[in-house]
Amino acid sequence: MVVTALMLSRIRDLFAAAILCGIYSLLGATAYVVMDAVDVAFTEAAVGAGLSTVLMLGTLALTTDKEIITPREKRLPAILIVLFTGGVLFYGTSDMPHYGDPVAPVHNYVAPRYILKSDNEIGIPNVVTSVLASYRGYDTLGEVFVILTAAVGVISIIGRREGKAKTNKINRMSG
């Protein structure tokens, strides 16, 4: 994954970058499966590797697929900022619980309740679904509204010309 991401930052051809982005998502999905998040991996494989790539390619078809090289003097401050932030975050990781640690704070709050009681309260085996739909129904409702808003936004930004484009063409032809 790191290699793919590095390639992403180096590559100039945006078409290849879009495909690499899909590969990166797919690798991410594999990592999620390894870490038991099957639902998430499923979504990531369908969304990240599939749809985003299609959308990026669509954008590239509408725009251009070559990138000009950023001047070197602009890159230096970026590298400095990134190194600094990265250093601070690395320092921060030393306080994190180890991978798979069963006594980490996240696992001791509401999660055990979801796992132990959801069978009696909700009665469906997939805990992710029951938390998503029932315990945190408000959140999910919010997400659905976000998606609706995004779709409406896309329509209003670039979609509304579907009908008008035709009339424009006709006007141009007649005029």
Partner: peptide, 13 residues
């Protein structure tokens, strides 16, 4: 989606 991995988000996509 309630028995195995899956659900509305994935199915929609």
């Amino acid at each position: 989606g309630d028995f195995g991995p899956g659900g509305g988000f994935q199915a929609g996509v």
